[in-house]
Amino acid sequence: MSTTELTREDLATVSPAWWAAGLLTVVLLAVTFAVEPGLFIDQAIGGLVYGMVLVLVTLGLSLILGLMGIVNFAHGAFFMLGAYISYSVVVTLGLPFWAALILAPLIVGVVGVVLEITVLRYLYDSDPIVSLLATFGLTMMIEEVIRAYWGTAPLEISRPSVLTRGTDLGVTTVPTYRLFLVGVAVITIAAVYLLISRTDFGLTIRAGVQDGEMTEFVGVNLPIRFTAMFFLGAALAGFAGVLYSAETGMRTTMGETFVILAFVVVVVGGIGSLFGSVVSGILIGVSAYLTPVVLSALAEVTNQPWLALQIRNLVPYLVMILILLYRPRGLFGEEGFLE
């Protein structure tokens, strides 16, 4: 997994069209800030926070896809499974939320390991489409297990009481729980980054994907490391599920909603780039919050009320369409990877 950084050469190769787009964005944001300063700040900060939540949700998917080349559609199902297990831990077993935060990811990780050994192991050499289809089938199974065991009615748990109120940031008040999520996301991203770029574990996996035989030849037990990697990816999804659902509750459609968003984030950021996923998560979070404000400010300035479109939920897809058409490998993706 590369952790591409912007270098001066990169900037020099940026085309005039991108410069123009950047400039236009800055102008639009400035106009919006001038028209609605209060709302602009609220939404910018809210969007930043939401973007970090998106990054957290995407992390496991980004790892599995980037390192192992598996298009893991079951990521959303793992995410949802983590959420529902946390419900059982907190409500049925009566344990504190913090226990769920540790137990649920472990259980989801184990489920991931079982699926890796029984199904995905046979797909490493196939076309990415095949792994997409197989994990699509697995998603169906996991979702049905959830419906059978927990039912289809929305559920919820109560959060630790410290986190139910708001934190006043001076310019705006943000739910304390979301700030907590941002903190957790930052720590998790840093830990994952260190694991894959600074440890022997991450390097051998990367080597194994590129040349499995050679890596095994030098004495690395690849199957076990691949399994461990999949454990990590699934556990991260479960972890995000626990954290996310503590605020919003559990719903049987949350997996499908988030797997699509997570794919959007990974594809926009560039497959194979952890750094790309972080940037794109924030980009998508902020633009989803800010675009409607920008449009309504624009409508006010130009006196064209039809411009004030409520397109918040469309923004992630628009961003993806634009990026993929003009830069198919995503913002920081490696050239030729899955292209």
Partner: peptide, 12 residues
């Protein structure tokens, strides 16, 4: 665009 990208573009 490459099959995975094609899938996600049509989805979007």
């Amino acid at each position: 665009k490459g099959e995975i990208y094609f899938a996600f573009l049509t989805l979007a």
